[in-house]
């Protein structure tokens, strides 16, 4: 086939970097049983320079996943346990008076790391959440008079527990929108659970050896940015997002009373970015509709507001997304 050089070059480039994702995946597999989707989502977020909001009950290897990823990338990792008495300074850092030097010195917070696990983000008050989310967005932190850029790559994985809602501060919609993906993880199956038991009770787990350099991740991020998205795919993304805003125009009148607000333009951007990263993980230099559908749920589920009627009828955002993607014609 006489394909244009740029796509061929890109495909070759992606093929040369394909071991990157394979190495990370196999490294993750050695420590985490199952949770393939979680691993893929973390990789997508990493490749898109985005962040992940993770929802799942305790004990599903959320912390282990991001910790292992940090170790595999040989990057700096920090964990912040969000509590009601947490202060913004505990996250971003503060100025401390040094008696020795007789001056204020900057004490950087745990956010100065490549991989940050914000555990149970909804347990801290809004001011702390805002401090974190602002840092996530701006990728820089101002302490005193000085602005400090955050490390690159920078990935925040925030977790939420879906069952204990008492005494929590649910993230406002505007804040959740800043997460590239919202991943909902479930329990492992029987076979996986058996493997988890064996892995944890027989001997010590083998140490994680770094397989990727943070610089390599930045290079791969640049490659991902070059992945080709055809206008047909753009139209497909736009149709999906618009169908959440004006369902009746897309033959989804039933959803009109279920959706209180549709996905934002940031959703369109995130969908395109995530689809590109997914295409990279599949070794392609171009995006196909399958890539869009694969990331659609994770990108959109926290960006669609549901009405009281939907909640009363136990209709989830995932069901709404299913209806939308089953109705929009694939290019």
């Amino acid at each position: 086939m006489n394909e244009p050089v740029n796509i061929r070059e890109l495909n070759d480039l992606i093929a040369s970097k394909s071991n990157f994702s394979n190495m990370i995946r196999s490294g993750m597999d050695r420590r985490i049983v199952g949770q393939k989707h979680l691993v893929d989502s973390l990789l997508i977020a990493l490749l898109c320079n985005g962040h992940v909001l993770l929802e799942g009950v305790p004990g599903l290897a959320k912390t282990l996943a991001i910790k292992t990823l940090a170790q595999l990338v040989a990057a700096k990792y920090s964990r912040i346990q969000f509590t009601p008495d947490l202060l913004p300074a505990d996250v971003i850092g503060t100025l401390i008076y040094s008696v020795k030097n007789e001056s204020f010195e900057v004490k950087k917070g745990p956010i100065f790391a490549n991989f940050v696990l914000a555990d149970e983000i909804n347990r801290a008050p809004a001011k702390v959440q805002s401090a974190l989310l602002e840092a996530m967005q701006e990728r820089q932190v101002t302490i005193g008079d000085t602005t400090f850029p955050l490390d690159s790559p920078f990935l925040v994985m925030a977790t939420q527990n879906p069952i204990e809602q008492e005494g929590t501060y649910p993230l406002p919609e505007a804040q959740t929108d800043r997460f590239l993906l919202k991943v909902v993880i479930g329990y492992p199956d029987k076979e996986e659970e058996k493997r988890i038991i064996r892995q944890n009770i027989y001997g010590t787990p083998e140490p994680v050896i770094p397989v990727v350099d943070p610089k390599e991740i930045l290079e791969v991020q640049k490659i991902v940015e070059k992945i080709y998205i055809d206008e047909k795919i753009e139209n497909y993304i736009v149709d999906i997002v618009f169908a959440t805003r004006e369902p009746s125009k897309y033959g989804l009148a039933d959803l009109q009373s279920i959706i209180s607000y549709g996905a934002s333009p940031r959703a369109s951007i995130s969908l395109a970015k995530a689809a590109r990263a997914y295409a990279f993980l599949r070794g392609r230099g171009y995006v196909i509709p399958e890539d869009v559908r694969a990331v659609c749920h994770d990108v959109m589920r926290h960006r669609i507001g549901l009405t009281y009627e939907a909640e009363a009828n136990n209709i989830s955002a995932d069901e709404v997304i299913n209806n939308v993607i089953d109705k929009i014609a694939v290019p």
């Binding site: 394909e3 244009p4 740029n6 080709y228 055809d230 196909i288 290019p331």
Partner: peptide, 15 residues
């Protein structure tokens, strides 16, 4: 078709 539609590939006449 996916190559042609989404990857700017120009197929050969035989394709």
């Amino acid at each position: 078709a996916d190559f042609v539609k989404f990857a700017k590939v120009r197929p050969l006449p035989s394709d």
